[in-house]
Design a protein around this nucleic acid. Structure first.
Lengths: 208, 208
DNA sequence: TAGATTGTTAATCGATTAACAATC
DNA sequence: TAGATTGTTAATCGATTAACAATC
């Protein structure tokens, strides 16, 4: 086992993919799986799977493969998916509302427990059993580890700072704005228009 | 200018970020901008900006910077954002409905013109002025270049193939499933639970 | 002209992949 | 034992960055 090398970010992202594959295999009652099979399902190379897992320990049996239940548990534990996560959502517009009701979150142990918005029309409404609170109560000590930003781009940075001041240490940012935050906060940017733009670029090249 | 080297995928993704920065600058009436300033707004290095742009030509003036209107137009043209895009959406659940009404899409010239779903409860409904059609009409020749997959994971691959058979050459995949499609189709995967899992991993490390 | 900033090269960095010894 | 597959090393590949000559 490799000792405490920094784990590459792409490895973490792939681990989530492996988790999903392993959960499927587990549902199907498969007991042991090879890196080759995981790789095929995840769309990567087998050596990549082995390398990724090796950052965290030795989970396989030579000549045989990986015991599915054991590996599933270990990957879940690495990604903290064996724990309940409390999530604060800011922005109860179109997208925020959809995110609040997204069934995939609960299945992965992510629970949106707070929703904030600045629009009087939305404050007080209930979305998925959570009451929308005014943004003006922020910052407020929140026992949440994760935050989701679904506000307009121009408000992004200010709201991000309020969430961080409320105790959130990782943010999922849907605003498209680049956040200038300190090194103590982890950010993942999801920009839906960017994704379509990238596809538009490729579609044009594929049409020729 | 570099000649016809393959453009790295991360470069294309950053181009979308630059586009947004340039649009902001243009709105503010800024006439000329340096790679340094673009880089700061986009959260990258200045040399990265210059390198990225150099794949497509020379757009700057030495000693001065880049003329904002000109560069904005060029980047828009590279990403095909100067053209209307017709998008087919499959899956009118929680997420699909939110996507259909996402105002960012229209602003970037992406128009969802078709919505398909298999649930009788949803078929015939109107979402954002588009009538939901039964999935059973697919495949059908669609003058669409882009497709969005917002169906449950187990249906993902079948639906993807129907869209491809309908003429779509690029897919935005929200299902979390890995799609085994040929090389003639471009796919971007957006997996919201994966994003939260990655953040959960980092949040744990930041808390120590 | 002096100062500034581009475009491009070459060096660096980091991630992916192939290969294979270890071993079940 | 023979066959299979892991864990790990070393080679490859590709992307980022620094540096600087070109030039406005």
């Amino acid at each position: 086992m490799e000792k405490r090398t920094r784990v590459p970010e792409p490895t973490i992202a792939r681990l989530a993919t492996y988790f999903r594959c392993l959960a499927d295999l587990s549902d199907q009652g498969v007991g042991v799986v090879s890196s080759e099979e995981i790789a095929f399902r995840a769309g990567v190379k087998a050596s990549q799977v082995r390398k990724d897992l090796s950052y965290f320990g030795e989970f396989g049996v030579q000549g045989l493969g990986y015991p599915v239940p054991g590996l599933l548990k270990r990957v879940a534990s690495i990604l903290q998916l064996d724990q309940q996560h409390r999530v604060a959502l800011v922005g109860a517009g179109n997208l925020g509302t959809a995110l609040a009701g997204f069934p995939g979150f609960a299945r992965w142990n992510f629970h949106i427990l707070w929703i904030f918005d600045s629009s009087p029309a939305r404050i007080g409404q209930e979305i998925n059993k959570v009451k929308v609170e005014p943004m003006s109560v922020l910052p407020r000590e929140l026992p949440a580890d994760l935050g989701i930003l679904a506000v307009p781009g121009h408000a992004a940075e200010d709201v991000a700072k309020l969430l961080v001041a409320s105790g959130v240490s990782a943010l999922l940012n849907f605003t498209g704005a680049h956040l200038h935050l300190g090194p103590g906060v982890s950010v993942r940017n999801v920009d839906l228009t960017h994704e379509l733009a990238i596809l538009a670029y490729h579609a044009q090249r594929l049409e020729q």
